[in-house]
Nucleic acid binder design. Structure first.
Length: 553
RNA sequence: GCGCCCAUAGCUCAGCUGGAUAGAGCGUUGGACUACGAAUCCAAAGGUCGCAAGUUCGAGUCUUGCUGGGCGCACCA
């Protein structure tokens, strides 16, 4: 709805500029917002003050001209007033709101979708956990945020792809193989010192046992490196399969899993290094190969190839991001743990070096998740293999609650996951509060159906809902597409979680003060359409978060 | 030492790109079911938006400097 107001306002201002009633301004940013104070109308804009300050004119005079012009196009506004230092407050006609409601009914599942993204290609890369162990709770937050963001971007009209980058090569994979082989030998009674920086989790033992049933003691007689390789490949495959299963249970979808190793097979890494050398952006020093990232705003240059001849993690990562650019993504979004923030300037430098605008790259940094049980923090340490897995969380509180909890903070704020609260099936738990609203509406609709009435626009007079609680509810519903679009452009998926809470609150309030099914047939029909629209909006936005909308609970 | 993030009601947090009188939930106090699901609702109390300057018509929001907390500063990934 804000969209429509903005469009109307902008065309009015443009028109006034053309007729010379307003000074010419090459660029101005309008801001239409919903005022906190209801007395100020449905929407408010400061455009007159912006224009006035640039043109050095009186804001009130500018506002006056805009208002007179807006009033002349009388299809939309009930009332347009000047307020304060030059605000323009606008109140829409009830018919406009009634139309907005019928639009929700017409669009159904598609309500909330917009064309903001104009089909631009966007990629979101997230989770990307190494296949060295199961997903833990930190990955869970990244998975929930990433998957929700993908759905939001899709709804906002972007052509979005979800990708998982698998580090299936390198030191960590080698350590994985060593760790598994060690456990394998241990089962066969061979005690050796545990490999340095090996993985100690119990799942390593499980994998060693699986290898034993496949190979019996056959690996013992193999060449060491060969045995490590067999262990590594089997373990990575097994763990990756587990990760995919975790993601499926968590309702997280990926369009593509990208193997780091393919960058080597396809010579992409070598090509990237050649490119940098050609552009004189890399140089040899002290036996290593350096990338001149400092030329692009990084605080110092970074190593691409170490003294020992092996490549750093950064080298293939440059090739990977070059590949993303080559695939035509206009916006590249990487979701990382906040502890990787130091890596951002480096990556932006790489993007810029490839000749792309470095602002097309967005690193969404996800802050730490800590876990609280019985009011006490739960200690976790990945290195020691002591961590709470995502699977454990899903099993304990359910997929829906877990996904919502991960979404109810801004990404850049630390999150305390309260297991006790998550398991409470009461009003304190926002997930149940929201799902309850949905179930309650479904119940009302069932009751109405028993009386032979179902929600339908046919012959229903929505003007009956033009005031009070009914109108307030419609206004919140109508803002859904604006919220989704804003969440997409600002990359702030948590806004959906808060919006849902607003919708549920507004509905519960409405429900307690008004009857849907009453002895007034016309009002009953109208309100059935209204609550059905509430149900639709709740279902649609829950779907954006990958959460189910139960018909009863 | 340098950099990034955070600081808003007793607690946990929103705050729509700089707008008008800063909002929710929990907790506290008091109320509402013999009609559509009380897993709900209503009301009250609760604030120097960490501190101090600056930018301007206007700052919780932007700038700078402090204070406090988290996280980084590898020829690890």
């Amino acid at each position: 709805m804000k969209d429509k107001v903005e469009i109307s306002l902008r065309s009015t201002v443009d028109e006034l500029t053309q007729t010379g009633d307003l000074p010419e301004l090459s660029d101005y940013s309008t801001s239409v917002s919903i005022p906190t104070n209801k007395d100020f109308g449905d929407f408010s804009t400061n455009v007159a003050m912006i224009v006035a300050s640039k043109a050095k004119k009186s804001p009130k005079e500018i506002a006056g001209r805009i208002i007179r012009s807006l009033e002349r196009r009388n299809d939309m506004f009930e009332k347009v007033e000047m307020a304060g230092p030059g605000f323009i407050n606008m109140t829409l006609k009830p018919a406009v709101w009634a139309r907005a409601l019928s639009e929700i009914t017409d669009l159904g599942k598609d309500f909330g979708r917009t064309a903001h993204g104009a089909g631009r290609k966007v990629q979101v890369e997230f989770v990307s956990a190494n296949p060295t162990g199961p997903l833990h709770i930190g990955h869970g937050r990244g998975a929930a945020v990433g998957d929700t963001l993908v759905r939001i971007l899709d709804a906002a009209g972007f052509d979005v792809q979800a990708e998982y980058y698998i580090n299936d090569i390198g030191n960590q994979m080698n350590n994985l193989g060593l760790s598994v082989l060690h456990r394998y030998k241990e089962i066969h009674g061979r005690e050796e010192p545990f490999p340095e920086s090996g993985y100690k989790g119990d799942y390593i033992r499980d994998i060693a046992h699986e290898l034993m049933t496949i190979h019996q003691d056959g690996l013992l007689s193999r060449d060491h490196d060969e045995a490590v390789k067999i262990c590594q490949e089997y373990a990575a495959g097994s763990i990756m399969q587990g990760i995919r299963e975790d993601l499926r249970l968590f309702n997280v979808r990926f369009d593509r899993f990208f193997n780091e190793s393919s960058l080597y097979h396809d010579h992409k890494v070598a090509e990237s290094l050649d490119y940098l050398r050609l552009k004189v952006l890399s140089y040899e020093d002290d036996g290593a190969l350096w990338f001149r990232t400092s030329a692009f705003g990084d605080e110092k240059d970074r190593v691409l190839r170490k003294q020992d001849g092996s490549l750093t993690y950064f080298a293939p990562d440059i090739a990977y991001h070059k590949d993303k650019l080559d695939r035509g993504f206009e916006k590249i979004i990487d979701i990382w743990g906040a502890d990787h923030h130091g890596y951002v300037p480096r990556m932006k430098a790489a993007i810029a070096a490839m000749g792309a605008d470095k602002d097309c790259f967005h690193a969404l940094l996800i802050q730490l998740v800590s876990l609280v049980r019985d009011g006490r923090p739960v200690q976790m340490s990945t290195r020691a293999g002591e961590f709470v897995t995502l699977r454990e969380i899903i099993d304990e509180v359910g997929k829906d609650v877990a996904r919502y909890f991960f979404m109810m903070r801004r990404c850049d704020a630390q999150l305390v996951f309260d297991l006790d609260l998550a398991k409470k099936k009461s009003d304190e738990n926002p997930v149940y509060y929201i799902q309850y609203a949905h179930a309650r509406i479904c119940s009302i609709i069932r009751n109405a159906a028993d009386q032979g009435i179902s929600p339908s626009l046919n012959g229903t007079d929505l003007q009956l809902l033009a005031s009070g609680d009914d109108l307030a509810l419609i206004k919140i519903l109508a803002s859904c597409p604006d919220i989704v679009a804003a969440a997409a452009t600002e990359l702030e998926p948590h806004r959906i979680a808060f919006y849902l809470l607003d919708v549920a609150t507004a509905f519960h309030r409405f429900y307690n003060r008004n009857r849907v099914i009453s002895d007034d047939p016309a009002l009953t029909r109208a309100r059935l359409v209204l609550v059905d629209a509430v149900r639709q909006v709740i279902a649609n936005t829950l779907a954006l978060m990958g959460i189910d909308a139960p018909e009863s609970m």
